[in-house]
Amino acid sequence: MIQLSNITKIYKTKNGDLTAVRDVNLSIEQGEIFGIIGYSGAGKSTLIRLLNGLEKPTSGEVIVSGEDIARISGGKLRQARQKISMIFQHFNLLWSRTVEENIAFPLEIAGVSKGERAARVQELIELVGLQGREKAYPSQLSGGQKQRVGIARALANNPEVLLCDEATSALDPETTEAILELLLDINKKLGLTIVLITHEMNVIRKICHRVAVMEAGQVVEQGQVLNVFQNPQATITKNFVSQVSDSSETKESIEQIIANYPTGKIVRVTFVGQSTKEPIMSQLIKRFDVEINILHGAISHTANGPYGTLIVHIDGAQGNIEEALHLLATNNIQTEVIARG
């Protein structure tokens, strides 16, 4: 559906060249929700704008549903953009237009007749759950409602791809959940391919099938969301994963435990899918004569399945601890020693 090959984007600035995107290769399947995560300045905003030709790559090829977006221009590019819509962090609605007029805007651009426009707008308003707000102006809406208008507007011309530029970053956690549900829903109902950029791992966890991690213009890691959560490789990815699994409270209590228990090891155990159901901890205690103290536990749901983390303190004879950790590894359970006494 989307194929990026050797994409580099260099901006010419007064202080010399600035490489925003460096040699990126990505392939996104039809119907997939693909997340791109990175801190601000990582180049993800530029990358997503390459997909609808708002930015042109310095070199490389951008193919979206068969069109070479980097090479086409004029009417052909405008035509292609009607099939690649976009929603924005700050919604970017026209304040001078009501909800229904905002949703009708892309239909006007596409040259849809007035009667058909009205019918389509009504459909979209129902799809995003904005019944009764048709005549309201954006200034009278909440953030979540504004983003619903943005989504309805983006879906108006039956696009094949939806680009989400930090679509939930300006929303509170509850509204974020609701908007993510809506995106998941339209992905399933309409089979729409969704590409989203974010700096929140929570968004990736909730709805993405695959994820790419960006740092300094490069994709440093990509894969199935569950695999990335279970087994993050790059340091930056580990940071993002701990965003979801550890709270700052846990970090403090771990420090406390280290002070209190000078012996043994503190281990983070990550379970994925089937292994969450096995009583592995009690097996360890029975078989290796070790003491296990559970410090923290959490289970998260991703689009590909559940994943759990436990932070435990294991104490006992050195050899027994090693054997216990070995058993976990052979059961395909990820372990990471955080601190040792």
């Binding site: 708002l54 405008r78 690649i84 924005f88 970017n92 805007f105 892309p106 596409a110 011309n157 680009l163």
Partner: peptide, 18 residues
């Protein structure tokens, strides 16, 4: 005018006259 609004219109495939 918010630059984002112009960008949004471009992303919908609007002509300059539009």
């Amino acid at each position: 005018i918010d630059k984002g609004v112009i960008e949004a219109a471009r992303s919908m495939g609007a002509k300059t006259s539009t």
